[in-house]
Design a binder for these strands. Structure first.
Lengths: 133, 133
DNA sequence: TTAATATATGAACAACTGTTCATACATTAA
DNA sequence: TTAATGTATGAACAGTTGTTCATATATTAA
């Protein structure tokens, strides 16, 4: 029994598999795999990236963010523009707030939302470039 | 009974709600909502964007794409680098292929995958800038 | 042909997600 | 205070998704 593991720059073990036959069964290109493993970002980084894309992966949230590119809008306005219920919009805004994609200010009973920064617009731009092909 | 709808540039009805009281109950800022609705992208566009971000919203697929930034790798290599099963990697690659995020070439029994273009790297760059804050 | 191996794929299942509904909270006006 | 209204949130439910396992396909070697 031999074991074969690849460790990246952060010390996180990316792969740890035991082979019966000197690490050489199967089609693995050992040198390329080892070199690639060294260049991989940490697990935390890939998870953070996956998380932010998950937040952006819903049609209702995409619409909310597009709407906020031009105007500061309240929950009621966002529901009207996006064609969702106010409850649904509010739930989505909670996620967007948690990831600091939007900011808000309260004025009496009304809460106005706006984009936190220009990151969303840049990410959308890149996403659209791929979609358009 | 009055009805109040907003139509955007593509002709898609974004909102179509009936009010009992001349469109003026609730907190909606009519002018801002109408102006915003005009500037909204089409439903097809928002759905396409949501779809591409959904593809990028999984940690295993993020790892696969990062691995392919440096080297052309086969399914077996990708399984080793990402710490997933070959079956799981193959399922993910199918999705990535369907959206033209990766391309591949067969050499005998081995199929080598690589990034289709530089879009993924640019999107990741923007995503990371938000994550880093 | 048969055997071996790399990859692909369908089914099944657990885990997750978005919406709705009901309800709670917050603010203002009466 | 009470009523009205804008927003937030918990529970529930249907729909979706990622993984595993079994199996199929494709290519090469014998």
């Amino acid at each position: 029994m031999n074991s074969c593991s690849y460790i990246n720059l952060t010390g996180v073990i990316l792969v740890s598999v035991e082979y019966d036959d000197l690490c050489s069964i199967q089609c693995i290109h050992e040198e390329k795999v080892a070199a690639t493993a060294e260049l991989m970002p940490s697990e935390d980084t890939t998870q953070a990236l996956a998380h932010i894309f998950k937040i952006l992966s819903d049609n209702s949230r995409i619409k909310i963010l597009f709407a906020l590119m031009h105007n500061e809008l309240c929950v009621c306005d966002l529901a009207a523009v996006t064609g969702s219920s106010e409850s649904s919009v509010s739930h989505h805004l909670r996620l967007l707030r948690a990831d600091k994609l939007v900011k808000y200010r309260r004025e009496g009973k009304v809460v106005y939302y706006s984009l936190a920064d220009e990151h969303v617009e840049k990410i959308f731009q890149q996403g659209l470039e791929h979609v358009i092909e």
